[in-house]
Nucleic acid binder design. Structure first.
Lengths: 225, 225, 225, 225
DNA sequence: CATGAATGAGTATTCATTCAT
DNA sequence: TATGAATGAATACTCATTCAT
């Protein structure tokens, strides 16, 4: 089971990841920016991006309304930063996995486990990622797309590598497979988040899904021959 | 290829389908309600649900702002009705397919083709279905969920039937598979809509996906025996 | 007890009183205009002029929305016509009373009884007259004022006549008295309408008020001299 | 003549009177809430409650539209607060008068002078109190009624006290008298406000009315004996 | 850095009125 | 006369953002 779950959910300050919008802070507050992001996850999950009020996020974070604008350009930027932060962490984890010297099947299994495992226990985050991100077509196209493409490429590269190694059927389209895999994971996470979000649900789903998919992708050693 | 594509996208007036909100009108306009729905698809796809202005929809439909409120309770109701209308048509098609006396694999293949084929050539509708529907968590939970559950159950029942018939592996979870399948289709449609929406892209994707998935789900006749 | 109560409340067609807005009607409907006016009294009383919807009045009158505009210029005109109609009837009754060859005290007593008696049993009308009429400052100033002045003058003339006849004190200002008398009657009617509107309440109030006021206005025959 | 006239019309900030809706503000503006209320009096008097635009009130008060909603729940609340504020001041003045150790006649005279004197010179306020308050039946019944009942009870108690002291006739109904008295004062103020609002008009009217009414209520010491 | 009072642009919705039938 | 579907002007209210303190 992935142990970087908590870091993904934002416990670690991870100052090196502050690529956008963050301003240098003195040591006064531990990390006000992170506090705001976590408050935003809660509020976005509960109300949705558009219905969420900046003042609510501020209140949930225990800061004044205006303070949010010291750390983020505007409300959009809060959502984008949220996605950006968490997605970068996921990407880093996926890349690390992809770089391992493992069998392709093992890698894909780990990737599936990783992604669903990250959300397991973080229903709010899952809801934000699966639902809220689509709330602004503009945000989706403008900011999410690039990272998303990176994500798909990591998966696709693992598939392609597997094909070169002879472990995966040649007639499979790597990028299409990546799209379908992401969709399947997203769909499972969505129904899990909107439904009961039962503990262990995602972990179990990850395992079953991996088995089925990999069986479909595996190159058959001349069946019946 | 499904030939009811156009009816799904709303070409046919289909007055008998006026289940919700519609009021009986005199024969003045052929079908003003349908005109509004189609205008809404365009505007929602271009701007997103929240950024879409009711007045824009009215203008695109060639009616006065107030007229929209003769056919729909409010802006939310337009989106919900849209989903409701189109989803019911998809469901009917899926059920018909599921009821056929075909092999399970054939049925699943047809279902995948049906769903992606319906969106092929209707980029706007695809974008509304894959993106806009998630714009309001409330709408999603309240209205979309029930129909969505019906959808999942149709797929799951086909899978379960295949298991009973010995065509599909026993260790597969029908409902989870349905969720993953829907997610994969949704993900493919989303990336297609947000990307180039190249002609034939969905149709091709449907075929490839079907092949891969079904291979993974198929019961192996004692490999190597 | 006044016996023209019912005519005041609009039972009689009173075609001669149709001074404003009314259009000649064929004998088709008994009196659609009157039906609309009575419906308006009900709706105005229940909702107030501004909150009252034209469509509600139409529905209460059993006609189509558009029909109202065949009999009245607009919504304002309905309220104005209402006041005009009823006020003219009251004025006619008051004038008749004032012209009688009675003692001044008797006349004033009758006037008080007449006015409150007219409203007794017509709570809706009472509420419209005491409350709704003031809902539009413009209406009040523009339309109600002239009739209202006529009303005050009838009262004032009776008072002045009483002074000339030596029945009423010389130091009383007739017009001020008329204003106060109307105010008192209006205030009593208002509290009656907004309160329980208990049967007989107005009639009883009329008698008591008359006694008190007249005692105050009566010329004392050299008390103690 | 009452010297608290100006305080009634709102000249004094009277921060202690901020019973409803007001939020504590920093010392920026002297009293923004009061400024809004006074602007509202002007606009309501000129246009009537319904025709008055919130933006007009804001402009007249020299604040932004939104600022009004920092001090009042909505437009209704502005009118209600207006009435509430001013009525409480009147009630306090009346109660003080009623509590004095004076003869009943003197008290009633003072009460009449007080009430009309308060409006003298404040035509706008007079118009709001006599006209606008009745513009919303709901407001009238819900908010004004309780304070109004208190008002009537103060008057009625003075009358009843006079009866016990033998100064006022036994056959007079205290509460009815209060209703009539209020109505008379209201009627006089209304006609004054809608008419020329000539200076001194109300003061003069107060004196004459007091004389007449009190004469009618006074217990006669065995006339002719 | 932090605050939160003040701002004012922006829009869904209503409903009086019209007019083709 | 009568209808009622269609119109579209008109406005209270919200809330992201700013900036004086």
């Amino acid at each position: 089971m992935p142990d970087n779950e908590s870091s993904f959910s934002g416990t670690a300050p991870a100052p090196e990841a502050r690529g956008r919008g963050g301003k240098p802070k003195r040591g006064t507050a531990p990390d006000k920016r992170e506090r705001i992001l976590r408050a935003a996850i809660k509020v976005f999950a509960r109300k949705g991006f558009f219905a969420a009020r900046v003042s609510e996020i501020a209140k949930a974070a225990g800061v004044a309304d205006g303070t949010i604008y010291l750390y983020f350009k505007n409300k959009d930027d809060v959502l984008v930063s949220l996605f950006d932060d968490r997605m970068r962490k996921l990407l880093a984890a996926l890349r690390e996995e992809a770089a391992r010297d493992d069998a392709t099947e093992r890698k894909l299994t780990r990737i599936i486990e990783l992604q669903l495992g990250l959300l397991e226990g973080h229903r709010d985050l899952a809801e934000v990622i699966t639902v809220n991100l689509r709330q602004s077509t503009r945000l989706l196209k403008q900011y999410a797309a690039p990272l998303f493409v990176e994500y798909l490429e990591v998966i696709a590269s693992v598939v392609a590598e597997g094909q070169r190694a002879g472990a995966i059927r040649e007639d499979i389209h790597p990028l299409l497979t990546a799209r379908a895999l992401w969709g399947a994971l997203d769909g499972i996470a969505l129904t899990w988040a909107l439904g009961g979000a039962e503990p262990g649900g995602l972990t179990r789903a990850a395992r079953e899904l991996a088995t089925t998919l990999l069986d479909g992708m595996r190159r058959r050693p001349a069946v019946g021959a």
